[in-house]
Design a protein around this nucleic acid. Structure first.
Length: 661
DNA sequence: CCACTGCAT
DNA sequence: GGATGCAGTGG
């Protein structure tokens, strides 16, 4: 249980000078992802200015060129070269160009009424009234990166949580544990007393080589302390992360920053500490000094109202000053639970779990209207576009193969500063196509309109969620080659990886939801189609296609920052995210297999897809205390979400065609 | 199960 | 600020 006692473990006062502060038990807990061991190793990886990098890679723009991603007149991502010109998120395009005339402002892709697919369009910004942003290109890149990260880690010792489109948390504990036993055989011999509370011997190798890592600067006396196992595990973790980052860079062309620490909380702050393209290790001895330099509102869950409340109540943003406030005094202001959570947080104490989850739980398509819209006809036009957008993404999720199936649909609406929403179940028994989604959405709109006060409407959004897993890997591979058309809904084996716990959260209750459990199985990935980190923490690269990096986006590049609309592009095609568009024959980017036609390649890629799913089902999970309400988690890697570009004309990477109404 | 709120990128 | 996504609260 979380106790407000200061920081990490090992507080035995009667320590043998030649023994570690840590015990055999604490070491052993690494193997099971114990959430409270002070030896735990968590990494947070954050892509640098992600959308901007996606455009740089897609367009083949040299790394040092300033580029920003434009959305209407605003900027939603600014790469690091552009930041040198003081360009920030608050700038609009005009201001930014004034600051830096050479800035490349690439507008995001958009859906356009009457068109059946998203596209990069030169005139997007001028068509805010008819276009809606599509973030699909970034979702696709996100998936590729995530799949690669998973491929870099041992299949049976990985725990990966997709935290957002451009961030992941890794719990490296089990992998580090394995590596530790390999490097330090003395750890494998049981404690002489047979008591796991016995302290470990000191690590035999004294000096640790941190290579290019950033270490938080410490006072000399702190730094002078002998390295103990908490330092060693961080070193091993940072080696793993360095390898993963190198792969992301080499194979996909993206840079990222990472933090390695004992908790999600601190690792996340660590990844932000130095950017771009750097990693920061926060050893346990460095946690308090590190946090001292950070504003409380920068800490997770304190960036909003609660953070403001804390600042105004205690009259300081300083973590250091807040640490001087007695717990009781915080309790008096914030209530016991929140107070304890805050007390721990500002000391870097966070036992929240890294959830094995890489799949999306809901998807949303939204539009803010400037100016507002005023009629049902206008609204319905947008519902059509939302339905198209969401349907195409559902297809990517594997709805056609029943891999996943959404159970609810939700329409939100904003009027006069107020928002209202209506939700309804999606019949699991009926075919779900674009038209069906559209009809459901219209229904919800009518319900909302029935309650009045709708117009003018400033915002509409349609979302689906409550995904359930459908028939998955237990399907023979052959089944993936069958026709994919409307199929009956999935009869999902309701499932969930037993996991979930969020040790402490501010001011929230922890409902004990049903934690349904599942058995996952499946054959192992045939060795050799990916880079992986062996138990020794070294990166092993086995036959990953060299062209994987260059073929995907880069072949789009040479035309510069043009519109890229399907109509404006000539010779590259793209049927799927993995293909090598520049070759006449169809080659699988994953394994180099060649095919003579698109259909064969697609089938082959579907096989990869299926295999990825299977592989990803094997992540172990553990439980500890305090359940968190969770529905169905499970993980999959989607190294090759298969896209169908059926039809003749060119599509952007990963696009799918839609029929609008 | 539904509607809403808060936090986050 | 806009487009997303997640988790939690309370009815």
């Amino acid at each position: 249980m979380p106790s407000p006692s200061p920081a990490s473990g090992a507080s035995s006062p009667l320590r043998d000078a030649r023994r570690s502060r840590f015990t055999y038990r604490q070491l052993a807990q690494l193997a099971t992802y114990g959430t409270t061991t002070p030896l735990r190793v968590i990494a947070h990886i954050d892509l640098d200015a992600f959308y901007a990098q996606c455009e740089m890679v897609r367009l083949g723009i040299p790394e040092d060129k300033p580029l920003a991603v434009q959305q209407w007149q605003g900027l939603i991502a600014i790469n690091y070269p552009a930041r040198k010109w003081q360009i920030g998120r608050h700038c609009d395009v005009a201001e930014a160009k004034k600051l830096c005339p050479e800035l490349i402002a690439q507008h995001v892709a958009t859906w356009r009424e009457g068109d059946d697919k998203w596209a990069y369009r030169e005139d997007a910004a001028a068509n805010i009234a008819t276009d809606k942003v599509s973030l699909d290109p970034y979702r696709l890149q996100s998936r590729r990166i995530l799949a690669l990260i998973k491929d870099c880690l041992p299949k049976d010792l990985q725990k990966v949580e997709k935290a957002s489109i451009d961030e992941v948390f890794l719990d490296l504990s089990a992998q580090v544990h394995t590596e530790l036993l390999r490097r330090f055989p003395e750890l494998s011999t049981a404690p002489s007393s047979g008591d796991s509370a016995q302290h470990l011997p000191f690590p035999s190798a004294a000096a640790l080589d941190w290579q290019t890592d950033n270490l938080v600067v410490l006072e000399e006396e702190q730094e002078a302390l002998d390295p103990d196992w908490d330092d060693v595990v961080m070193l091993v973790g940072s080696e793993i992360v360095r390898g993963v980052r190198a792969q992301i860079r080499e194979r996909l062309g993206y840079t990222c920053s990472a933090g390695i620490a004992n908790s999600k909380l601190v690792s996340k702050l660590g990844s932000a500490y130095k950017k771009p393209n750097a990693q920061t290790v926060v050893r346990s001895r460095a946690v308090l000094p590190f946090l001292t330099g950070i504003k409380v509102t920068k800490m997770r869950n304190l960036g909003g109202k609660l953070g403001d409340q804390v600042v105004s109540i205690f009259n300081t943003e300083s973590v250091k000053e807040l640490r001087d406030i007695p717990l009781d005094q915080i309790k008096a202001k914030l209530g016991d639970e929140t107070a304890v959570w805050l007390y721990n947080t500002i000391r870097g104490v966070d036992h929240s779990e890294v959830n094995s989850r890489t799949q999306i739980k809901s998807m949303l398509s939204a539009k803010s209207f400037r100016p507002s819209i005023n009629t049902p006809e206008q609204a319905i036009k947008w519902l059509r576009i939302f339905a198209g957008d969401i349907y195409s993404r559902l297809v990517e999720e594997g709805i056609l193969e029943h891999k996943r199936w959404p159970r609810t649909i939700n329409l939100h609406h904003r009027h006069a500063g107020q928002t209202r929403s209506k939700q309804s179940p999606i019949s699991p028994g009926k075919a779900l196509d674009e038209q069906a989604l559209f009809n459901l959405a219209k229904d919800l709109l009518h319900q909302i309109m029935a309650e009045g006060d709708v117009w003018p409407c400033a915002n509409l959004s349609l979302s689906v969620g409550g995904f359930e897993e459908g028939v998955k890997g237990n399907m023979a591979i052959g089944a993936f080659f069958k026709k994919r058309d409307e199929v009956p809904p999935p009869l999902p084996p309701t499932d969930t990886i037993p996991e979930g716990r969020t040790a402490e959260q501010p001011s929230k209750k922890h409902r004990l939801d049903e934690v349904r459990s599942i058995q996952r199985f499946f054959a192992k990935r045939p060795a050799g189609d990916a880079a992986s980190l062996g138990a020794n923490g070294q990166l092993h690269v086995e036959q990953l296609p060299a062209d994987d990096t260059s073929s995907f986006w880069l072949d789009h590049g040479s035309e510069g920052a043009d519109t890229g609309g399907p109509g404006s592009r000539s010779s590259h095609n793209t049927t799927g995210p993995e293909d090598s568009a520049q070759f006449a024959i169809y080659a699988c980017a994953r394994c180099k297999a060649g095919f003579s036609d698109e259909v064969s390649l697609q089938s082959h890629q579907d096989w990869h897809f299926a295999k990825d799913i299977q592989d990803s089902e094997r992540v172990p999970s553990t439980s500890s205390q305090q359940p968190t309400p969770s529905r169905s988690h499970t993980s999959r890697s989607s190294g090759s979400a298969s896209k169908r570009g059926r039809g003749g004309s060119k599509l952007e990477q990963g696009q799918s065609r839609l029929k609008f109404g």
